[in-house]
Amino acid sequence: MNEIPLHPANASLVLCPDGPILVRGDFDVVMPSGEPAPRQRKTVALCRCGASAIKPYCDGTHKMINFRTEPPDVQGRGTSERPN
């Protein structure tokens, strides 16, 4: 079995290409007031495109507005090569 890299911190953030930030592990989502954001699940997707109707969470709208996380000339879509 291939060795799976360890993430030593208690939580990890996955920067999804052209999509949200997926947060896993032990963390709290808090509003600027310090109040906890309503939360129903362990792993959450935080809106990165700004267009979600359920912020701070993602609702998939980034796909409809063609949100891109990489500048157009280094897009690596459809291949396994991504810029470092």
């Binding site: 949200p20 997926l22 699940r41 792993t43 969470y57 993602c58 609702d59």
Partner: peptide, 16 residues
């Protein structure tokens, strides 16, 4: 309403 939020998480996990 639950599926709007849940599936925006799941689609990332399921795809990648």
């Amino acid at each position: 309403d639950e599926h709007v939020e849940a599936d925006a998480v799941h689609e990332q996990i399921a795809g990648r």
